[in-house]
Amino acid sequence: MVTAVQPIANSTPVAPTTDQRSSGTLRACAALLRRDFTLAWRRRGELFLPLLYAVIVAALFPFALGPDPELLGRIAGGVLLVIVVLAMLPALESMFRSDLEDGTLEQWLLAPQPLALLALTRVIAHWLTTVLPLIIVMPLLGALLNLPVKVLPVLMLTLLLATPLLVLLGAVLSALAAGARRSGILVALMLLPLAVPVVIFAAGAIAAAQSGMPYVAPLTWLAAALVLAIVLAPLACAAALRIAVEA
């Protein structure tokens, strides 16, 4: 069992100045990041499972549709997008579960640092450990599916904007489902309505790039939505975590 590094590093007994307090918050977030990375590193075998899943699904498509390179090239962008979304799902579900079970979440609630900020830190750690590897292997999967080379950078950029958005939304749902008995398919069911606009705009950018049209507009929409979600989703996530922990 891994001993948890406490996120509350320094709560000085005398009233701290604003400067001290903000630095304390930053240090708490850094400690939390460090803890999450340590935990992820100790279970590094599990981090490969989404990658393996993505490779398997990408390899199955040519068998199902036939090896026609032109057909594969036309659908590759959308297929890879869906593969990434599906490969993200299992990890999303257990984002806060172990923290609820071992009491870490109660420490979060009691900590002087704002809960929303701690949740945002968790989202960043989660994205870096489970989603970023998926984006890194995208060129490989693109080659498997004969994705046109000029589309690849747009696909990567789209995923860099869309996946943090999905993780932010998923964090809210995962926090909502953390207190529930069973939540296997539940997070996927709840995420579907929220993911529809994200997938539409991401697929729109990829399709536009594929047909040589301007693809900046959908990407700008995604970026705007990401900024909005970075501000709002941690607040909703904090509210959901309070419901999960409080009796």
């Binding site: 909502l176 008995r181 539940l186 069911l189 709840m190 509210a239 419901i243 999960a244 009796a247």
Partner: peptide, 25 residues
């Protein structure tokens, strides 16, 4: 999603609050 989340909770008052938040989202 709202129905599923509500029914997944042992404590139904907590389930109702979680599902209400989902409805607002």
């Amino acid at each position: 999603g709202v129905i599923g989340l509500y029914n997944a909770f042992e404590d139904r008052r907590r389930g109702a609050r979680a599902a209400s938040l989902l409805a607002l989202v």
